[in-house]
Structure formats: structure tokens, C-alpha cells
Write a protein that binds this DNA or RNA. Structure first.
Lengths: 320, 320
DNA sequence: TTGTATGCGTTATCAG
DNA sequence: CTGATAACGCATACAA
């Protein structure tokens, strides 16, 4: 019992395959009774059109490839949720790629997506040195990372976010403020958070210091800064770790130590409603990313590369 | 400048398309120098085989459809992460579907996946009354929900989990223990958590009461149970809400109120390391689900439906 | 060891 | 209003 195809429907309905195709796509004029017959036959056979064959012919798959580190992280999980939602509303499907932060996997995915003829790619896996992006002529939108000259970047205002967070801590009366960030990479807009922190501290004549993630950064942070007053973590997961470590050391938050994070994913807001953070406009990022991707897909010729920066918001919780 | 196809490579390499195909798939005998020529041509043209055309011919896409409520939820996000990982390791890609808990969307996705000729489906979106599953002859594995007689179900041991959680609270000396759960639905193994709670309470001659999620369940819970000693929440997000509400009311956890959740997603464990919970074997669930799906895909004839129940683990945190 | 012809399931073109 | 035919890009059976 194989899958019925268009020809089977045609035979049962006693018409030609062309006619069935016409009914299916509502193209050209068709007699009312033939249409009925065709629908009946489709129903009876439980027929579904084969999108693969269709894709091959029209040279378009209506699939968007989405590459991010992991759906396991609440921020990416939510971003991907919205990306998928927006795509779906436009008739596009999403092929999911978890790079797991590995450059080789990202490269492999990228090639796989090309072979699979996806109509476009949204990439937010932050690996370095993947020149495949540069060579590719495929519609691509990048989240938070410069991939190549011709690839538009969507991000939220990381510099402003860093400024808001730092200034907020200063306004709260803190002077000894430490920043935690991932390892510095070139071309990553997320590092603007660090620049903003350092600039803002300078502007206020305060000493600044950034810890980069390592096996021991947490202990180091606390051991080396007994006079610590506040921490600006570059994401909420890190902020949470700082808070928990403080708790374990008997340091009270916010009385003895103020902590602010970054991202504001829904799940984190729910689990840690007290956490102060910089809220990224996650749904908006998704909306705009897909929008720009669609522009490329629909007019791949004279398409003008424009980067978009979305506003962030300071959430004053109870940890500051 | 269109995409190069196999014939273009053949022309450049001065061989026939068949030969190129052979090189590509490493089939049959090929001369060493021809192979070299072909590879060179592929390189020069930046050629990628068209998987769509290939799929159409071999009648197989190596795509698995994955339907869940939302990647935004840490538990599903992590489960999907692992599902994608396992699939990738077997050469399969994942088409992501967020049902958002809506039955109409799930139905639409299901149809879309059929049209797209996916080789199989893993479904964990818990809607009711989708008979499409019953009619479908496609390889399907369900997570935590009975969809049809012929569809295997993978779940962790929900009854045992409910037992562990309840007994743990009793062991901690609690008598007035309330359970919170989603609305009761038929055929959902997750409701076994509730059954286990009620059975365990009965067995210990303790009064039991289950609150179902509603707009006011949290307030009701606290207002109607001034002598409340413990809460067993059917997932960690709910547990977190209970803890926060308690905090707002000046009720200390765990001194005045003990709370245990369910799921134990990585992100939640990181954000709320103190939370007692029942840990589901998320990675294992993913591994087994894909495994069973592959069995169906590879021998769709005499395939024996077997459900699998995986063990859970009690995590004793500081909230109990 | 390599090439030719055919078909996978669909749609567009062009005739009727 | 409807039908025959070719084509999308690839892989197989069969020849050479």
C-alpha cells in the first residue's frame, strides 16, 4: 500500500493529472463538477501532495535553516520559538540546527542546509572563522554577529544595555563593580556590553575589571574582591550563578552585593522574578530577522544590506 | 549565475553525469584519475548535490518532524536539543514544529509533515482528539501521550515520580500536602503523577487535594490552606511560582512550607539549584525515542509496538 | 570502467 | 475548460 500520487487521484477521478494539479493549486478555470470529483478522489485516497516533487520543480522549498548553539538555553529556546512562529505564519518551515557551540558542527550544518536547498538561513551560532558564509550567495541573516560584508546583522542594542546596567548599579550607590563576560571574540556585537561597562565606569572615574568565563572565575571573583559591591553579568545564567555563590558564602543580595544580568528570557523571568536584568526584545528580534530574510529571498538582486539594532529595557528587580 | 548541477560538473570534468553520481556516492568502480577530475570540477564549481532531487528519487528525506508545545520551555527546549542531536548523529535532520499547545496548529503541522515526506515524527504536543494520528501509517513515536494503538509511547516513570515526591514530603514530616497539576486529560501519562500522589496520601491515611491550574489557583491554594505544610507541583515552573508566592507572603521555604517540583531541566537546575525535584532522564528519553522511531523507519512491516518507561530520580534540594 | 536511457511526482507550456 | 508533453536534478538498470 504505497502513498497515492497525483496520477492515482487522476485515475480515480477520471481526469488527467494536469487537472488534478489545477484543482490543487486553484489555477485556471475548472468545471465545478470536475473539481468535486477530484476532491472526492483525494479524500478517498487520503492523498497528500508531495512537497518534495513540488520543490524540485519550482526550485523553492519554503524551508528556513536556523542555526543556534542550543534550544536548551532559555534565551535561544525562546528566540527559536518565535522565529519558528513567524516563519510558520509566512508559510515557511524551520530546519533546526543546534551547533552546540562547535565550529565543525556549524560548518557541517551550513553545508547540509545548502544541499537541502533551504530558501534562507538565520544564524546565531557564534563561532569564528567560517568562511563558508562569505562564499555563500544564499539569503542569510545573522543574529548578533558579523559574518560577512553582505550579511545583515540583527541585534539588540548591546552597548546601550551595558550602559543601562552599569549606570543602574552606579545609581544604586555602588563603586566596586565587576563585569563578567564570555571570552572576547572579534566581530561579536555582544562584546559591546563589555565596552559599555568599561566606558561607563571610566566616565564615572571608577575602577573597572572584567572577568572572563573560566573554570574558576566564580571563586576568583569572590576571593579577589572582598570589597565587591556589585556584579554585572553578561547573561542571566551567569548572574544566577553569582547570586547562588553569594548565598553560599553568606553574602546577602542585594544588601551586601547587587547583581544584574542580561537577556530577560521568559522562563528566567518566571523562575527568577526578582532578578534585575536587561531585557532583550526577543520576539521583535525574531520578527525583524525573518522580515529581513524574506526581503532577501524575494528580491535577491538589488537587495540593500542593512543592519538593525533593537532597543533594550532595564528591568529593576530586587537583586539590585 | 545559477546553482551548478550534476550535469555541469560532468561537462567540466568531461565525463558523463552517471560517473559524477558514482563518485558522489562512492558506488561501483571508478578510475582514480576520473575521480580526481570530478572532485576538481566539483570544487571549482562549488557544487553541492541537490538533496531534494535525491530525496525524490530514493523516496526518503532523512528528515524527522518534531512537534512539541514550545522550545521556550526549558524542559522541552532541552528535550528537543537532545532529539536533534541524536538525529543528527544518525544523519537525520529535524523539522521543528511548535504547536503552542494549540490543537489546530498541531493538526496543520501534522499534515505539513506528511506533505513534506518526512521519514518519521516525534510528537509531544499534548492536544486531544487528533485522529490524524490514528489514520497515519507514518512512523511515529509519542512522548508522554497515547495517540493511537499502533503508536509507541516513550515516557519516564510518572507514577513512580509522583510516589517519590509525595513520599519524600511525608518522610520530611509533612501531613498537609497539596498537589498542583494541569487540567486532567485522558490518555496523558503525566496524570499518573497525580494518581501516585493521591494513592500515596491515601496509603498513609492523609487527606489529599489537587489544585488544577487556573487563573487564581495560586491565591486559592494559599488562602484556602492556612495550615499548608507542603506542595508537590507537577513541574518546576509551577514549583517556582509557589515558592515566589510564599516568599511574598512571608512564608519561609522550607521551614514553613516545603516545595518539590518535577522535570529537572538543566537550565532550571542552574537557575534554582536549591529546588527539590523529580529528575526526568531527558537525554535518555531523546535517545530511546529516536531509537524506536528508527526501528519503525527501517522495518515498517513487522514492527512490534512497545512502550518504554524510563526511571526517574529524586533530587533532594533545600526546598524540602 | 564508463555511458545512455528512464523515471521519481509535480507543474508549466501549449494545444485542443 | 481540459489534456498531452516536457522539465526540475538526480540515481538506477542496462548496455557498451
Amino acid at each position: 500500500m504505497k502513498k497515492p500520487k497525483l496520477a492515482d487521484v487522476a485515475k480515480l477521478a477520471e481526469v488527467s493529472p494536469t487537472t488534478v494539479s489545477r484543482v490543487l493549486n486553484d489555477r485556471g478555470y475548472i468545471g465545478e463538477k470536475t473539481r468535486k470529483k477530484v476532491y472526492a478522489a483525494m479524500e478517498e485516497l487520503n492523498y497528500y501532495p508531495n512537497e518534495i516533487a513540488r520543490s524540485l520543480f519550482i526550485n523553492k522549498t519554503f524551508i528556513v535553516g536556523v542555526i543556534f548553539p542550543t534550544t536548551s538555553n532559555p534565551f535561544y529556546g525562546q528566540l527559536i520559538y518565535h522565529l519558528e512562529n513567524v516563519c510558520e505564519s509566512l508559510g515557511y518551515k524551520v530546519l533546526l540546527c543546534n551547533s552546540g557551540g562547535r565550529e565543525d558542527k556549524e560548518r557541517a550544518y551550513l553545508e547540509m542546509l545548502q544541499r537541502h536547498q533551504v530558501d534562507g538561513i538565520i544564524a546565531g551560532a557564534h563561532n569564528r572563522g567560517i568562511d563558508l558564509y562569505k562564499k555563500s550567495r544564499m539569503p542569510i541573516v545573522s543574529f548578533d554577529r558579523i559574518l560577512a560584508d553582505h550579511i545583515p546583522v540583527v541585534s539588540s542594542d548591546n552597548y546601550r544595555g551595558g550602559e543601562l546596567a552599569t549606570q543602574h548599579l552606579i545609581d544604586r550607590g555602588c563603586k566596586k563593580i565587576i563585569h563578567i563576560n564570555g571570552p572576547r571574540e572579534l566581530e561579536t556585537p555582544a562584546n559591546l556590553r563589555r565596552d559599555a561597562y568599561e566606558d561607563t565606569m571610566k566616565k564615572n572615574n571608577l575602577p573597572y575589571r572584567t572577568y572572563e568565563i573560566s573554570d574558576t572565575y566564580l571563586e576568583d571573583l569572590f576571593n579577589e574582591n572582598l570589597d565587591l559591591e556589585a556584579v554585572f553579568a553578561s547573561d542571566d545564567m551567569i548572574a544566577s550563578k553569582v547570586i547562588n555563590e553569594a548565598k553560599n558564602r553568606g553574602i546577602r543580595v542585594p544588601e551586601d552585593l547587587k547583581v544584574i544580568g542580561y537577556d530577560g528570557a521568559e522562563a528566567v523571568r518566571m523562575l527568577l522574578p526578582d532578578l534585575s536584568t536587561i531585557q532583550q526584545p526577543i520576539e521583535e528580534i525574531a520578527r525583524v530577522s525573518v522580515e529581513i530574510l524574506m526581503e532577501q529571498i524575494n528580491q535577491s538582486d538589488n537587495f540593500e544590506v542593512k543592519n538593525v539594532t533593537l532597543p533594550v529595557e532595564l528591568i529593576k528587580g530586587k537583586t539590585t
